[in-house]
Amino acid sequence: MSFRASVREDIDSVLARDPAATSRAMVVLCYPGLWAVWVHRISHRLWTANWKLAARVLSQMARFCTGVEIHPGAELGRRLLIDHGMGVVIGETAIVGDDVTLYQGVTLGGTGNERGKRHPTLRDRVFVGNNANILGNITVGENSRVGAGSVVLQDVPPDSTAVGVPAHVIYQDGKRVLITDPAQIKDPLSGVIKSLAEEVKRLRARVDCLDGQLEQTARELDSVRSLATEEEEREQYRSELSASNPYVSMGEGI
Rank of each mutant, 00 (worst) to 15 (best):
S239F: 05
Q236R: 10
V106H: 06
Y171Q: 13
N245W: 03
K175S: 10
E220Y: 02
Q172C: 15
R118W: 05
G174T: 11
H168M: 07
E75A: 11
L214V: 11
E9M: 14
L210S: 03
E232D: 08
D181E: 11
E114C: 04
S23H: 02
G110Y: 00
A36Y: 02
L102Q: 06
V100M: 07
R115Q: 13
E114G: 12
A205V: 01
P182C: 08
T66H: 14
D181P: 06
I193P: 09
V68G: 07
E198C: 09
E215T: 10
T121W: 07
I90F: 01
L122G: 00
N245C: 03
K194R: 15
I254T: 13
M86T: 14
L102R: 00
S13C: 09
L76D: 12
T161S: 06
A54H: 07
G110C: 06
V39P: 03
R63K: 11
T22Q: 15
R78L: 02
S242G: 11
R63Y: 14
G33R: 04
S223I: 10
E233G: 02
A54I: 07
Q213W: 08
R125E: 11
A62N: 11
L76H: 13
L241G: 13
L46E: 01
G251H: 07
L29E: 09
Q236L: 10
Q236G: 09
W51H: 14
E220C: 02
T180Y: 05
L203I: 12
D18L: 00
E198R: 15
G149Y: 00
L29Y: 00
V177N: 09
S150D: 08
V68A: 06
R145D: 01
A5L: 13
V128L: 05
A16C: 05
G116V: 00
I42A: 09
L102H: 04
L108A: 02
S242M: 15
V192T: 14
I82S: 06
A25H: 14
R123E: 15
W35P: 02
E199L: 13
P120Q: 01
E232G: 08
D159E: 04
A243S: 09
E252T: 13
D208G: 00
S2I: 14
M26P: 00
G149C: 01
E92L: 07
D222Q: 03
V177G: 07
N143Q: 07
H71G: 01
G251R: 06
K186F: 13
H40I: 05
V106D: 02
L76P: 15
N133V: 06
D99N: 10
L210C: 02
G73A: 13
D173R: 15
K175T: 12
M1A: 15
L196C: 11
L189H: 14
H119S: 02
V140W: 00
V146E: 04
I134R: 00
E230S: 11
